[in-house]
């Protein structure tokens, strides 16, 4: 589904990703871990097409197509979803209005009929159960006045509505209390199936107790420093990240997960 080959990227001329190789297949859950500044969030933003980041080298194939050629909204309509670390507020625009517009854009893209507000309301009510959100959230402005936990749940609600093929969750666990973490993780688990894939970008092992990845990749200095199964995350939890920084880089070309 996703093939990242020798990806170099940065912001304002500073190279942050220095040759990432990663392959993600349908049905898989990958965790990207690493210390602050290692490039985890940059990877998420480059995949979703954030305009501030420039790709300087390498390629990203998504379902065989060159992903880097697509505008962010085209990527989204093709099934890539990013849950933001800091979800943005859109004052005056109701959650329901925003979600219906996004949902209908995707349907149009797939050549399907758009849903009217009433039809969409039913769908939204159904999907909101995934993250235990009640109807009052739908009439409130997008993320405005939401608590940290509510914002993150709202991200997963959007994922539930848009049903992406590839979901990239950027530090979705940050700032969540244990109850909110349980709800958010539960939502992701309900949405994950054999036909989609999830990339979890996280600093902590905690999230991985709830969403269990098959593959863990540890980033350091813009490269994948270590890869393994879910047990690698536990090892990091005990040892911290410092030992990785000292360790030799083992990220040669083609050292992807598969």
């Amino acid at each position: 589904m996703l093939e990242i080959k020798n990806l170099h990227a940065g912001i304002d001329g500073n190279e942050i990703l220095k040759g990432i190789n990663l392959t993600v297949n349908k049905g898989e859950i990958h965790a990207i871990m690493g210390p602050n500044g290692s490039g985890k969030s940059t990877l998420a933003k480059v995949l979703s097409g954030h305009p501030a980041y420039q790709v300087t080298k390498g390629e990203v194939l998504y379902e065989g197509k060159n992903l880097l050629e697509l505008a962010p909204d085209e990527r989204a309509r093709e099934g890539i979803f990013m849950a933001f670390q800091y979800p943005i507020e859109v004052p005056g625009v109701s959650n329901a209005q925003f979600l219906r517009l996004a949902y209908n854009e995707k349907r149009k893209h797939l050549g399907e009929e758009e849903l009217d507000p009433l039809e969409f309301k039913d769908l939204l009510k159904e999907r909101a159960k995934v993250v235990e959100m009640d109807a009052s959230f739908m009439t409130r402005s997008v993320n405005e006045g939401f608590s940290g936990g509510e914002k993150k749940r709202n991200e997963i609600l959007q994922m539930a509505v848009l049903e992406p093929k590839l979901a990239v969750l950027d530090e979705t666990d940050s700032g969540l209390d244990i109850d909110a973490l349980r709800i958010v993780a539960g939502g992701v688990n309900q949405l994950h199936n054999a036909n989609n894939a999830v990339i979890l970008v996280t600093h902590y092992q905690r999230l991985l107790d709830y969403i269990v990845p098959q593959f863990v990749h540890v980033l350091a200095n813009g490269r994948i420093a270590k890869e393994g199964g879910k047990e690698l995350a536990l090892e990091l939890e005990q040892k911290g990240y410092d030992w990785l920084k000292a360790a030799p880089e083992n990220n040669g070309a083609g050292a992807g997960a598969n």
Binding site: D73, F98, A102, E105
Partner: peptide, 25 residues
């Protein structure tokens, strides 16, 4: 830019994203 990117990341074109933000305003 962040607001626009957020809406675009949900599949909304840049023009529509501007409209949406302005209409909300």
């Amino acid at each position: 830019e962040e607001q626009l990117f957020y809406l675009q990341q949900r599949g909304i074109s840049q023009e529509d994203a501007v409209s949406l933000i302005i209409n909300g305003f």
